[in-house]
Simulated scan of single mutants.
Amino acid sequence: MPDRELRTLRGREIAMIFQDPMTSLTPVYTVGWHIAEQIRAHEQVSRQAARARAVELLTEVGIPDPARRVDAYPHEFSGGMRQRAVIAMALACDPALLIADEPTTALDVTTQAQILDLMLRLRETHGSSIVMITHDMGVVSEIADRVLVMYGGRAVEAGTRQKVFHTPRHPYTRGLLNSVPRTGGERLHRLPTIPGAPIASSERPTGCAFAPRCAERHDACTAQPPLTGDGHLSACWLTATEVPA
């Protein structure tokens, strides 16, 4: 699409929360300017109206004393407060889709939980759908309705959270879940890991991309398995109905 058409979608229909709140805001502009600029780019409103809306959004995401904080600069906010400001900016035009790229990675555990609770609450009030991109399986179990597992740029498993977490079908998904530290049961001397290293896009094999690291690989894995299944999809010859000769 031409840039002019893309601009009508970015921010208004699709918005994004980036991974690192420390670098997501321009340091020479106030937090309120960031939010108001987003609003004025898509709506015909005055500076005063955009600023008032920015104060409302900061209130909604839980920033204390928003009427004063709207004129603060990013370095005057903590990491958690910056991420709340980024969320306010993303929600400024009530987008239909919110893409969150590792939005809690740079935050401590307590702040992480607060941000996830905030996103779930705002999803209900704004009616936005959320696509969460993350390596943290704990975050996935907390927030996701449906899960898509990817490896080497390809989808390897897809299904509801319950099916993917309780009955994982792809070896990579099982490896991810087994690598999560357990809080109960027998204490392990060593945390299970997936052997080998992730592949670069230039090194992607012709068959299953996970085959070089998979303990269950066999001859059929030299061909690319399709993503198939009834509601719970998997790209693995071990779960396929037809295996190449």
Rank of each mutant, 00 (worst) to 15 (best):
I143K: 15
G185R: 05
I143H: 07
V45K: 03
P27H: 15
M81R: 09
S129C: 12
G231L: 04
V140Y: 12
S78Y: 11
P2R: 07
D230E: 15
S234G: 11
E37I: 07
R10H: 14
G152D: 04
A220Y: 00
Y29G: 00
E157F: 00
A223I: 01
V180E: 10
I14R: 02
H126I: 14
A36L: 04
H232R: 02
T125C: 08
I194N: 06
C221I: 03
R12F: 00
L116F: 07
D94S: 08
G185W: 05
V55P: 04
P66A: 15
R146Q: 14
T104S: 12
T167N: 09
S129Y: 05
T8L: 08
R190H: 12
M1V: 10
R7D: 07
G231R: 09
T183F: 12
I199A: 15
P27D: 06
M22G: 12
G32R: 02
M150P: 08
S234A: 11
R213E: 01
E157A: 07
I199N: 04
R10W: 11
A54S: 10
D108Y: 07
L118M: 15
R4P: 00
A144L: 10
A245K: 13
P66V: 15
V180I: 09
G80K: 05
V243D: 02
V61F: 12
A209R: 01
I87R: 09
E37R: 09
A15I: 03
V180C: 08
S201W: 07
R123M: 07
I39D: 00
R7S: 10
S234M: 00
P226E: 01
Y151E: 05
P171A: 01
R40V: 02
L122R: 08
E60I: 00
S78R: 04
Q48E: 15
D136T: 01
F77P: 13
Q114D: 10
L57N: 05
T228E: 02
L97Q: 01
I35K: 09
H166V: 13
F77T: 08
L188E: 03
C208Q: 01
T193W: 05
Q44F: 05
I143V: 15
A215L: 13
D20N: 06
A41D: 04
C208L: 03
I14K: 05
L233I: 00
T111M: 09
P181I: 02
Q83N: 08
P226T: 07
E37D: 15
I133C: 13
I133Y: 11
S202I: 09
V156P: 05
T104N: 10
D3C: 13
R146T: 15
